[in-house]
Design a protein around this nucleic acid. Structure first.
Lengths: 144, 144
DNA sequence: ATATTTGCAAATAATTTGCAGTCGA
DNA sequence: TCGACTGCAAATTATTTGCAAATAT
């Protein structure tokens, strides 16, 4: 999971950051590239200990700083549905989050799409998040 | 906001707890009654300092214990969309949460209803939460 | 040159835990 | 009586802050 400097992922990450108007500093590129690359929803701790291996000087404060910055500029999304620690998601597109109450994994659901809801007059919607809890197919199967 | 022992709210709370199979101990009734009564989404701290006035022996640990218990038995819902502190909601019915990014208030939206989503085969849904961010009518008006 | 970013250590804040005493059936 | 509940104090955990050094343009 350690990337070489020339990794495609990092180049792609840098270029996306640029197009979002975010200066592609090395730590930002590393964090953002990591989020783009993994499919789970890592916590600060997970991001930190993963990247620490390839960037030994990295501090956790910097991970917090970078994530805050990326959040403010809408490059990543913070999801804090439950539990104590925030999780982060490279916001490539809207999708539903599903948490299995048995295995505790969080799944990304691409279909159906996050619905467009008609709020009462006057409300202006920026983002819509849908969070579903239940039983995932794998755990449901094991119930029998 | 301090209730007398014979308050309707407390009787109603006790009876709802019973029907949910939860023993209506006094602290539970107090916390649950409070959540049913207020329309905002109080944090542990807010619940604690509010109830402390009428129940001077109350400890914050107990508020945590009671809320955990009520959550497990689906009498209340924990919402931790962002920020560090969890907020709690008496789960009388499903509704959408809307957070205004300007005034930071969280609104309950009753209409439209939380949609029923058809997940891929095998997923079993227990609860669906919808969280929308944007601009509330009041703040939108002040933008001009 | 100047504003931004980094990273350590310390501070803060929310929550959890250990445990002894109390309460309810 | 027995298991569930309470509440204090201490521990833990995630996050924030202060500040000095390093970096980017």
């Amino acid at each position: 999971m350690a990337y070489s400097k020339n990794d495609k992922v990092l180049k792609e990450a840098a270029s996306r950051l640029k197009s979002l108007g975010i200066r592609p500093l090395s730590h930002r590129v590393a964090v953002y590239g990591h989020l783009m690359h993994v499919n789970n929803h890592p916590s600060v701790e997970e991001i930190y200990s993963e990247l620490k291996q390839s960037i030994p000087t990295l501090s956790k404060t910097t991970v917090y700083n970078v994530l805050d910055h990326l959040c403010e500029h809408h490059a990543v999304r913070k999801i804090v549905i439950e539990g104590r620690e925030a999780r982060y998601d490279a916001m490539t597109h809207d999708h539903i989050h599903f948490k299995c109450n048995t295995c505790n994994l969080i799944y990304d659901i691409e279909q159906p799409k996050v619905p467009q809801l008609n709020l009462p007059a006057g409300y202006e919607v920026t983002t819509t998040q849908v969070y579903i809890e239940g039983l995932c197919p794998h755990c449901a199967k094991h119930m029998h």
